[in-house]
Simulated assay, not measured.
Amino acid sequence: MPIALVTDSTASVHPTVADKRGITVVPLQVVIGSESYDEGVEGGVTTDQLAEALKAWTPVSTSRPNPDEMLEVYERLAGDGATEIVSVHLSSELSGTFESAQLASRRSPVPVRLVDSRQVGMATGFAALAAADVRDAGGSAEDMVAAAKERAAASTSLFYVDTLEYLRRGGRMGAAAALLGSALAVKPILKVDNGRVGPFERVRTSAKALARLEELAVEAAGDAEVEVAVAHLASAERAATLAERLTGRLAEGLGDREVTVGEIGAVLGAHVGPGMVAVCVARRTTHSG
């Protein structure tokens, strides 16, 4: 493997897919009470555990992999024969993971090309998969970086949350914005914009918010070929309904691709809270496989 590909666990790349596509996934950590868990690994925290802890107001926090942990990954890949590494991560505006990768890259035994996806969740995952497509087609590390950045920029990430309180508590949103979003029982829709998560629209009820989320996803897709992912935390029925409706409305753009549905990773889930439903619409680019 002359070019190794790395991402982090918030990218929501399923372990089976990561293994098949040759993507190394570095876990972030979730701390519940006094217990720390790696995300996305066997024996790690489950989304049910996370949702129950959040509902019970048990202290929950998250942490990035430190630079030494990232360096260990790069050194292992180099030892396995990699001559270059492409490392694709969630927005540097939301996590220190990219900074850890930067610091580790300076000590890596082989060159590391870094991608700040300016995205979260499956939008970062789609970026990593675009890089894998280019590598599988014989492209260079530089081509992989360009593909990942292009795919991330072509993706739209939208979230419905029952409350902004979890984002406020995690420091991902200011108290004033959280208070505004919670006023008069308004149900907020959030959007990732230039690497940050912020309020996008406010709707009066959860039913109207989910209907609006659907409309926004359809608008984001337009007439383009797309891949769509729906994620949730303790809201499986809502997510399944949204995925079913988007499958019908975006049939032409989806082609033979399915709308994927799954639970959000524990790290992102800790910041959005139970009841969250998210949708990522990733327009297919010139580098999409």
Rank of each mutant, 00 (worst) to 15 (best):
83 T>H: 00
100 S>M: 12
239 A>N: 02
136 D>V: 03
273 G>Q: 09
196 R>V: 15
197 V>R: 07
170 G>L: 10
184 L>D: 02
207 A>P: 02
68 D>T: 11
263 E>C: 04
187 K>S: 11
49 Q>R: 11
227 E>K: 01
83 T>Q: 12
217 A>Q: 14
118 R>G: 03
34 S>A: 15
219 E>T: 04
104 A>Q: 00
53 A>W: 05
164 L>T: 02
207 A>F: 15
90 L>D: 01
242 L>I: 13
72 E>L: 08
244 E>P: 00
120 V>N: 09
150 E>W: 00
96 G>R: 07
137 A>P: 05
177 A>M: 08
89 H>T: 03
42 E>S: 15
238 R>M: 03
163 T>F: 08
235 S>H: 10
154 A>G: 04
133 D>K: 06
63 S>A: 13
10 T>N: 04
193 D>F: 08
288 S>F: 11
188 P>W: 02
246 L>Y: 04
289 G>E: 13
5 L>N: 15
226 V>K: 10
100 S>Y: 12
210 L>H: 14
234 A>R: 02
6 V>K: 08
95 S>M: 12
163 T>A: 09
283 R>G: 00
44 G>N: 04
270 A>V: 12
164 L>G: 02
276 M>G: 10
198 G>H: 11
122 M>Y: 07
96 G>L: 08
247 T>K: 06
183 A>P: 01
31 V>G: 00
28 L>T: 09
6 V>P: 04
34 S>G: 09
47 T>C: 08
52 E>K: 14
66 N>K: 08
264 I>Y: 06
112 V>S: 01
17 V>I: 11
199 P>Y: 12
280 C>N: 05
204 R>L: 08
173 M>G: 08
284 R>M: 14
100 S>C: 13
23 I>P: 01
160 Y>L: 15
13 V>G: 03
104 A>W: 00
15 P>Q: 06
143 D>E: 14
273 G>I: 06
74 Y>R: 00
56 A>S: 15
10 T>I: 09
245 R>D: 04
234 A>N: 05
252 E>F: 07
211 A>L: 06
79 G>E: 05
250 L>I: 06
4 A>D: 14
286 T>A: 15
195 G>W: 05
275 G>P: 10
48 D>K: 14
207 A>Y: 15
114 L>N: 09
268 L>C: 06
91 S>K: 03
20 K>Y: 04
113 R>A: 05
193 D>R: 15
171 G>W: 02
108 S>K: 01
253 G>R: 13
185 A>G: 00
81 G>N: 10
222 G>P: 06
215 E>N: 00
56 A>D: 12
205 T>P: 10
16 T>N: 08
69 E>W: 04
230 V>Q: 06
32 I>W: 02
266 A>L: 09
49 Q>D: 13
260 T>K: 10
266 A>F: 05
230 V>M: 08
108 S>Q: 09
98 F>H: 12
85 I>E: 13
186 V>Q: 14
172 R>D: 12
86 V>P: 02
115 V>I: 02
217 A>R: 11
121 G>D: 14
233 L>S: 13
258 E>V: 07
193 D>M: 12
22 G>V: 00
243 A>C: 11
